[in-house]
């Protein structure tokens, strides 16, 4: 079955890159522009994996993950955080918010798909 990936990123460039990489790898891609939008999209989608940015307007990635983890039907969805930081602080904050794992930007499509494979059921 084709897996669906939800990407949440406020940057159009990143959204385009994510779409290109993920569709190229055979995933179905749905996209949102920030955390609030991400939750709206989630109301009608059951993605297999969520990939989210951290720095976003309206609701950042931390808030978004926390909201996902509070939703009884979505809380076990793996959430990968897109981050340019590799320092421990960012990772532990993402982890504390409930992230499953992370992808370090600038990602290459191989790394991205690999990380998704690692957490996708």
């Amino acid at each position: 079955m084709i897996k669906t990936i939800l990407t949440v990123d406020d940057s159009r460039t990143m959204r385009d890159m994510l779409r290109l990489s993920l569709e190229g790898a055979g995933f179905r891609v749905v996209q949102a522009e920030d955390g609030v939008h991400g939750l709206e999209v989630l109301a009608g989608e059951m993605p297999d994996v969520i990939v989210t940015d951290i720095n976003m307007p309206r609701m950042d990635g931390f808030g978004f993950i926390e909201a996902v983890r509070k939703d009884d039907t979505r809380r076990s969805t793996p959430v990968l955080v897109l981050t340019t930081e590799v320092d421990a602080e960012k990772k532990s904050r993402a982890k504390a918010a409930g992230a499953t794992g992370w992808i370090v930007k600038p990602f290459d499509p191989v790394k991205l798909v690999d990380a998704i494979r690692r957490v996708a059921n």
Partner: peptide, 14 residues
């Protein structure tokens, strides 16, 4: 302001 610079950096990295 932070996000703007952050986004530019992110894309530029790619």
């Amino acid at each position: 302001v932070f996000r703007a610079v952050h986004s530019i950096k992110g894309g530029a990295g790619a």
